[in-house]
Nucleic acid binder design. Structure first.
Lengths: 251, 251
DNA sequence: ATCGACATGATTGAAAATGAGCGAACCGCG
DNA sequence: CGCGGTTCGCTCATTTTCAATCATGTCGAT
């Protein structure tokens, strides 16, 4: 039996049963346990299964997807930024959230607060799914797997149904000249509608985003009422925003 | 048997019966009581069950999602049902999915198929989020943490925008007399709209749901075009549905 | 025929999981 | 209350599993 066939077989067995043991597979496939371990290791390397002691199990969705919070870059900064944002929000407010790992960190800390959260991002909704106190409204729309945001007319129409107190925006780039930008046009469009409907716009971004420009414009920096970033932010950048009357919180 | 399988078994047993004893599990699984205790401790640490003296019980309504507990009950049956449903779908079709753990098992196997999936359930969207081939549309709406479904007028309006080939319905109860039912009124309402918009209606339910009635009606059994269930289904129940011209698939 | 690349199987010391033993804590019951 | 039996959490020895290494076998190319 060829390696490919064997690995195929392992995956199908796993799909059928949810978890499999090394010894078990060894007997089933008629190869040594060493070979089974090698196969499992290889498959796990491709993210097709999760290795466990004694065997393997199905990968949990969300464990391996690109935005998984634990895998995020600048995680400590993002956590602090998220915590600061969460602390500044008040009970009873209506919050709009875009996707992104920084916003997700904030969302995680909103659990149990009496808030209404409107979001087009799957990961945000998921963070808050367990919270009894928080009302979560998803906008719906076409799902973009890269960012887990939903976009398109459904998302935009839903955003328009709300009057939002504070928008928590996770941007990919913030430039004094070019404004708040993101990578994807459809996301930018949905986010723009959120901004339109929001009284305040807070942007959550670690310092790596500052001065950066990405293709799709959400809006000018002047539309932002508060920026929460980390201590790595360049002083002149911060000063320039403050001159424009934007509240810059550095954590 | 590896640890994962054993713990899955424990959760399944717990979901079926509401509470389990250490000694009992030890005999059932063929491992020492010490190991059972360790497993229970670990699962309790993940919030998947509540430790009691002498055993374990389901987590109280409140902090944790009962979703995980539900997911573990009749898991092998649900996998087979999900696989059968996935195998019967054809490329290019527009599929509507409600929430529910059985439907989630089917969704997992739809990855990579060229389909359009419209759903009001967060867990379904998450299963398919990684798939490049599959277009996923979320309806949006207010999120119910218990089932991870979104409900309300936003969800219903979104469903109405689609012409759906096949609806995959996960019901909580199916009764010849009372029809297809679920626990929650708002969910039933959203699901009813999905059914309206669908050419075919397939219900995915393990045998524990058959003959059961729960508070909120989705529709009469006659509206269902196919039932996929497991071998534990009572013969007379299956026969009765077949008399009505419903295609019953037993896996 | 020889070589090299690759897959497989066996070996080994380390790590993890398991099972048994033992006081301490807890339950039900008088 | 207090008591006996059960259950718990802990430690320690044993078994299982792991990852790494090396040897063998297979196949195709030179």
């Amino acid at each position: 039996m060829i390696k490919e066939q064997r690995q195929e077989r392992i995956l199908s067995e796993l799909a059928k049963r949810g978890s499999v043991g090394v010894v078990e597979l060894s007997k089933l496939l008629g190869v040594s346990e060493a070979t089974v371990r090698r196969d499992l290791g290889e498959l796990a390397g491709h993210g097709l299964l999760r290795r466990t002691h004694g065997g393997a199990a199905l990968v949990e969705r969300g464990e391996e997807l690109p935005y998984h919070a634990k895998a995020a870059a600048y995680l400590p900064e993002k956590r602090r930024i998220g915590a600061a944002a969460a602390a500044l929000l008040e009970p009873g407010q209506v919050i709009g959230c875009t996707g992104g790992t920084t916003v997700a960190q904030a969302a995680r800390l909103l659990q149990g607060k009496r808030l209404v959260v409107v979001t087009n991002a799957l990961n945000i909704a998921l963070e808050l799914a367990g919270s009894e106190e928080t009302d979560v409204i998803m906008t719906g729309g076409a799902l973009r797997s890269r960012s887990l945001e939903t976009v398109g007319h459904i998302a935009e129409r839903s955003f328009r149904e709300f009057c939002i107190d504070v928008a928590l925006l996770g941007a990919d780039g913030i430039s004094i000249k070019e404004g708040i930008t993101t990578y994807h046009l459809a996301e930018a469009h949905a986010n723009r509608v959120l901004v339109e409907r929001s009284r305040e716009v807070w942007v959550l971004a670690d310092h790596s985003k500052l001065g950066k420009v990405t293709p799709a414009v959400i809006g000018p920096v002047s539309r932002m009422t508060r920026l929460i970033t980390d201590a790595g932010a360049p002083d002149d950048f911060v000063a320039s925003l403050r001159e424009q009357g934007i509240d810059v919180v550095v954590v």
